[in-house]
């Protein structure tokens, strides 16, 4: 099977400079924030790729790049053979692309327009893409979508504030499914929900994936959630992917020290009483990233080459990982190539 989604060397920089006048007066240079740097991955049809990492590591930016809410600074997002950059132009092809890619947002309290009835919210993609004309057929389709997410057709008459967080998130899923998409981007869809409701929403998403052959890009900082839903996992640190591979490989035998630190920090019932290693230090300022490997100030395995040159992602023991210590890139020969 070919890849449905491809990110090729995608980078996104934001101009966070002070206003022009202040810059001139205070003699400050323009400043750019490198939110995402040279991220590449592929997602096969029907597969779930999860991106994990601490707050501010750029995982949500990747989601917004993939869905076309942000335009890439460099690199390409290709979905089903079409460049996502074209999706914001008003052509028919662009609309067709928009239909195929949908997103589920983090905050179910902000992602539904409070003044719209649920039925109108769910029908919006159908009306926008003129898939079904207004009338009994549309009502039937909306009822069917609400049924898919275990709500009733009668719930369509209500307003979002009459639902709980989990129900709202399910409405959001129904809306995302309304245009028969192939690729769903889920930006921390469960992080605002209670644990019991999280499981409900996740299982629903898994069922829907199986029934409709959906492809997911799943953004989360919750490793247990990721373990539950993902096929493959990418670990991000300061805008770059540091380790990416099959879930069992990455979680079972993490190679990057950062992945190991994240996994060690998960609370576990079996470890009661045993002191856990907290993730030491804090994420560095992305405006002023450390030289070499961005993780080196926090890394327990830091050694000579780490702050000199950035390690590249290389295939290693069934996954790709960017770390000198883990992959043995520290040999003098590799050093010269890395610096070159």
């Amino acid at each position: 099977m070919s890849a449905l989604v491809q990110l090729k060397n995608v980078s996104k920089t934001f101009d966070v400079s002070a206003p022009w006048l202040n810059r001139v007066i205070e003699r400050k240079p323009q400043t750019f924030l490198h939110a995402v740097s040279e991220v590449s991955f592929e997602i096969k049809r029907g597969e779930t790729l999860a991106l994990v990492g601490e707050s501010g590591c750029g995982k949500s930016t990747v989601a917004r790049l993939a869905v076309g809410l942000y335009e890439t600074s460099t690199g390409q997002v290709i979905i089903d053979g079409h460049d996502m950059k074209a999706s914001n132009q008003g052509t028919d092809a662009a609309r067709a692309m928009r239909r195929k890619v949908q997103m589920i947002f983090q905050d179910p309290y902000a992602s539904l327009n409070p003044r719209w009835r649920v039925a109108d919210i769910v029908a919006e993609p159908i009306r926008t893409h003129k898939l079904i004309a207004n009338g009994p057929l549309l009502d039937k389709r909306v009822a069917e979508l609400l049924g898919l997410v275990k709500l009733t057709a009668k719930d369509g008459e209500k307003y979002p504030h009459q639902f709980s967080g989990g129900q709202r998130q399910r409405i959001s899923i129904a809306r995302a499914l309304a245009s028969n998409p192939e690729f769903l981007i889920c930006d921390e869809p469960t992080s605002a929900l209670d644990v019991s409701v999280q499981a409900q929403v996740l299982n629903l998403m898994k069922d829907l994936q199986r029934e409709m052959g959906l492809t997911y890009l799943f953004i989360s900082h919750n490793l247990q959630v990721v373990h539950h839903i993902a096929d493959r996992v990418g670990v991000m640190y300061l805008g770059r992917i540091v380790e990416i591979g099959d879930k069992d490989e990455v979680f079972g035998a993490p190679k990057h020290p950062y992945t190991r630190m994240l996994l060690d920090a998960i609370p576990d019932l079996h470890m009661t009483g045993i002191a856990r290693t907290p993730v030491a230090g804090e994420v560095p300022n992305p405006l002023n990233p450390p030289s070499g490997c961005a993780f080196n100030p926090r890394c327990p395995k830091k050694f000579e080459p780490c702050d000199k040159a950035r390690p590249q992602l290389v295939s290693f023991s069934g996954r790709e990982v960017a770390c000198y210590a883990a992959t043995g890139q520290d040999k003098p020969v590799d050093m010269t190539t890395a610096l070159a």
Binding site: L69, G90, R98, Q102, F105, S111, S179
Partner: peptide, 14 residues
């Protein structure tokens, strides 16, 4: 900046 506006953009609403 709320997510429902972004959701509408993702849907492709003008």
């Amino acid at each position: 900046s709320k997510e429902y506006v972004q959701a509408a953009r993702v849907i492709g609403v003008s």
